[in-house]
């Protein structure tokens, strides 16, 4: 089977393919090549370190978009049990680029909500590549309100290139749907835990993308605009998205440094798809520990604490004289 690989991964994949061939030969007992295999495995290990241990920002963006990267559906299966999916915005349609519903996190009853990217072309077409229309955000608002009403902590998963840009989306109020979803999140009286698992594309991500705790997978990104969009606006398309990604400060470590996210979950060399079960286990650990902390906060002060957290996102300068007003 031919594996998907970005340019920077290709030399490694070539070696790995070669190793597979040699192993097939050996198992057919055609040749005694155990020593060669051993040598090749060592080389592969070295190359893997070289390829993945110092990823550029752009390479991280690529890994965040990797087709084999675990998706919302994978995390639902790996982290939760007894998922009951809910559908529809009660106004226009069911937008499957956002999914959510009741689930159990160990013994804890919770509500989950997330962008749905597909694991293959068929799913991606059905789920619009995780790019919601207004009805997706209105479904999200319904799910948030249910969580609030029944006292269920809200666990969200962010993975979208952005909200869908289209004629119908504008006609049905893409802007206000996102705005209302953001406003709803700010008011919830239940704990809100966000996990950025792949792409955090702009307002379409933010609509379900802030809360009491924001966890990011190491190779996910969260950005005010896609690197492609930034490149075309700020440089008039004259530089690559690669360069734009560098200046946008969109990686997990940079956002942690800026105090905009709370925790980073490490990924294996090469990205989450190289050990999905391990990543899901570590992500679950962070979600559970965040939830334990937040349950200790009184129900009445959760929204206030969330507001204070938002209020502290500043990074501006102000001369003293205006402060005294």
């Amino acid at each position: 089977m031919k594996r998907f690989a970005y340019d920077f991964e290709r030399p490694l994949v070539q070696l790995e393919t070669k190793l597979d061939e040699m192993k097939r030969l050996e198992s057919a007992e055609k040749e005694d090549i155990a020593a060669d295999i051993c040598y090749l495995e060592e080389q592969i290990q070295k190359l893997r370190m070289r390829t993945y241990s110092k990823l550029t920002t752009w390479q991280k963006v690529q890994l965040a978009r990797h087709p084999d990267r675990p998706k919302m559906v994978d995390y639902i299966e790996a982290i939760f049990t007894d998922f009951i999916e809910l559908h529809g915005d009660r106004a226009f349609k069911d937008d499957s680029s956002i999914t959510g519903g009741f689930a159990r996190l160990d013994d804890e009853k919770v509500m989950i909500l997330g962008h749905q990217k597909g694991r293959n072309t068929k799913e991606n077409i059905a789920w619009n590549f995780g790019m919601p229309n207004p009805e997706g955000y209105r479904k999200a608002i319904r799910i948030m309100r249910l969580a609030d009403k029944f006292g269920l902590p809200l666990i969200t998963f962010v993975d979208t290139p952005g909200a869908h840009p289209g004629i119908g989306a504008e006609e049905r109020g893409q802007a206000v749907a996102i705005a209302e979803s953001i406003m709803e999140l700010s008011q919830l009286k239940v704990p809100v835990i966000v996990s950025v698992i792949g792409e955090g594309g702009s307002g379409g991500a933010l609509a379900i993308g802030f809360g009491d705790r924001i966890i990011m997978l190491e190779n996910s990104y969260y950005s005010v605009i896609t690197p492609e969009g930034c490149a075309s606006i700020l440089w008039d398309g004259e530089v690559s998205a690669e360069r734009a990604a560098e200046v946008l400060g969109l990686t997990a470590d940079k956002l942690l440094e800026l105090g905009l996210v709370d925790t980073i979950v490490k990924e294996p060399l090469g990205g989450a798809h190289h050990a999905p079960a391990l990543v899901a286990r570590n992500l679950k650990k962070e979600i559970v520990s965040a939830l334990d902390e937040l349950k200790a906060v009184g129900k009445e002060s959760l929204a206030d604490k969330r507001y204070e957290k938002l209020r502290s996102i500043g990074h501006y300068a102000e001369p003293i004289k205006t402060l005294t007003k």
Binding site: A179, I182, M183, L185, S186, Q187, S202, G203, L206, F210, Y222, S223, V224, I225, C230, I233, L234, L248, G249, L250, L255, L258, L260, R306, Y307, L310, R311, I313, H315
Partner: peptide, 20 residues
């Protein structure tokens, strides 16, 4: 949102909306 301030700008959407 102002691109030159990255995610800090995006988070202003949440801050202003929460105030509303």
């Amino acid at each position: 949102a102002r691109m030159q301030e990255g995610m800090i700008s995006l988070m202003q959407m949440a801050k202003t909306s929460a105030a509303v």
